[in-house]
Write a protein that binds this DNA or RNA. Sequence first.
DNA 1: TCACATTGAGTGGTCAGACCACTTTGTAAA
DNA 2: TTTACAAAGTGGTCTGACCACTCAATGTGA
Lengths: 215, 215
Amino acid sequence: MDNQSTKMYLQIVRELRLLIQSENIKPGGKLPSERELVERLKVGRSTVREALRSLELLGLIETKRGEGTFLTDYRNHKLVEILSTFILQDIKTINDVHLTRQTLEKEAIRIVSASPNLMDLPVWESLLIKLEEDGTVQREDIIREILIVSNNRLSLKMWFLLKQYGEEPYQGFTNEDEITYLIQLLQAVMDGEIEQAVEAYNAWTNLLTKGRENV
Amino acid sequence: MDNQSTKMYLQIVRELRLLIQSENIKPGGKLPSERELVERLKVGRSTVREALRSLELLGLIETKRGEGTFLTDYRNHKLVEILSTFILQDIKTINDVHLTRQTLEKEAIRIVSASPNLMDLPVWESLLIKLEEDGTVQREDIIREILIVSNNRLSLKMWFLLKQYGEEPYQGFTNEDEITYLIQLLQAVMDGEIEQAVEAYNAWTNLLTKGRENV
DNA sequence: TCACATTGAGTGGTCAGACCACTTTGTAAA
DNA sequence: TTTACAAAGTGGTCTGACCACTCAATGTGA
């Protein structure tokens, strides 16, 4: 039918973009059904599906069996996820994963301790109290909170991924030193002492690294 | 057949990843034909194609009618095109991309300037000379070299991706200040002055950020 | 009237088979 | 040997058929 050198499914991707624009479909909104697209675009269903599957893997749309196809919130795109699984295949050293994760964590710490309105958040105080009183706070909770507050969704997403690939870097506490360092970290964050916070973080991760080596 | 909750085509994406790994297919190498995949994976051809089309849109594979399907290196432009038309309007997202990329860059700078054997590498001297004499060195060359030397392949690959995704943050030089900052950066690296290097980097990126806003 | 079960329409998920367009390769003819 | 052409292999597309799931309209019984 349309034997242009341009592949049909790419054409459909373009058409879909225009359709979304002209019909003003917003994130969360519903796209026309596959069968309707077949009629409107005059193409086969399998071709339509190739386009839709592509956009789904890109995280631009979401499909629910029995319901329909929906435009997603772009912020949650799983682009990084897919690419990571392809890229991580030939990364031999799990060490890179840890180091990269730590890079993201350190930067988040710097951002938070450098911003007066972030370091004054009540969450740090409450984490600190929990840390000192009981052991209900997990190591991961603290770092995660810092990442979230630093307000970079992409970094946060990557962090989750790296955490997953890096085989449970965080669990329960194993010794008193850890708690000491974490308290130092939190206090430095609250005081806006950037380098001090990073230093406490480094001391803490050194501890963990040693722990991993001993296993 | 396989009515798991996981969608079949995603399963195939995973299988393909394993297949590429186990058969050691390198960029430019040929993948099994669609019909062969149908037999090996025991699925319908349309399902196989959905998986392949997705990976193609991601730029991970390339198909040539009459020839076959090939693994690409991750340099493909389609990814950038598609995503930019769909997502790039989202300021917050693109900003996250830039910030995350800068996070990786800063950490690489810190690592290199903190390591005596890395900061003594002759490459810095030669980059510096080129920078001062002629304009043959691209901004990107310097940063890339630092990333490479810092020796974290995962970070490096993520950096490549973010760079593509963030639409050419680096190009030719636009003004003298840039060169000044880059010279400062390189010299600080060679001197092992970590914070000084980071400072020069920050000054430089501020320049670029302003440049972006003015467009 | 209300609560609950049933059913049917709509939708995505998958498969099989059929052509088409193109490339490569082998083979037969000049 | 060289050339021309046919065959095989590959991706591109379409059609039609089921299946699995969701949801709302419908019907039924209390």
